[in-house]
Design a protein around this nucleic acid. Structure first.
Length: 221
DNA sequence: GACCGGAAGT
DNA sequence: AACTTCCGGT
């Protein structure tokens, strides 16, 4: 990642504001992009006890988003992480409302066959070694960045934790990729969601609608 | 195709 | 424990 120390600071401030998180001491984050992306979750927690895990999760989303962008306009020129606050250019994103061009057909570009992790200089780096991520956390991650994933999953009633999966195939594919389960599909993903009913992580909505689910109180916060 | 849970596997 | 895989039935 090619963020400078200032880019990192801008991203932190922007993210804090986006999610109404408490202010943190920037001095512990005087890092450039490479250094920031090599921090593990515990290191985020140490630097920002109040919101370290949220920042960590958000950074993961940014990484994924940038990878997707890169793989899309790939091959041409080197792509540089665009930064949020600074230097203006907030690219107008990627919301692909691929307006139904009626016709159809061919499925979307089979995304990335190129999981190039962000350039983490210095060698090693814990890529995504022990992502113990749970499905409900993953879904919340997707829901947290509507500009990127709003076309496949979005909140219907944020405060109640009600959301809708707009593109079951895509969401399942993203989940399978995250868990390294190439055979993942919506049938299996939805089975996992159903397990959440008895665990109290999700519940059925009052009036059941296709592809609409609801988190139980604590989990949608 | 989505939804539903039992049952077995990892 | 938290899924993943498979499945017969709605």
């Amino acid at each position: 990642m090619q963020w400078t120390v200032d880019d990192v600071k801008a991203w932190l401030l922007w993210t804090l504001r986006q999610y109404n998180l408490p202010m943190i001491s920037m001095e512990y984050f005087a890092l450039d992009g490479v250094a920031l992306s090599s921090l593990c979750e515990e290191e985020f927690q140490r630097r920002a006890p109040q919101c370290g895990c949220t920042l960590f999760a958000q950074l993961e989303i940014w990484k994924a988003a940038c990878q997707e962008l890169e793989s899309r306009l790939d091959m041409t020129e080197a792509s540089r992480w665009s930064s949020p606050g600074t230097s203006a250019s907030n690219d107008a994103s990627t919301s692909n409302n691929c307006a139904s061009s009626s016709g159809d057909a061919s499925d979307d570009e089979e995304e990335e066959g190129d999981p190039t992790p962000p350039p983490t200089a210095g060698g090693k780096v814990a890529t995504r070694g022990g992502s113990h991520i749970h499905l409900w956390q993953f879904l919340k991650e997707l829901l947290a960045s509507p500009q990127l994933h709003g076309s496949c999953i979005r909140w219907l009633e944020r405060t109640k934790g009600v959301f809708k999966i707009e593109d079951s195939v895509r969401v399942a594919r993203l989940w399978g990729k995250r868990k390294n389960r190439p055979a993942m599909n919506y049938d299996k993903l939805s089975r996992s969601i159903r397990q959440y009913y008895k665990k109290g992580i999700m519940k059925k909505t009052e009036r059941s609608q296709r592809l609409v689910y609801q988190f139980c109180h604590p989990y949608c916060m």
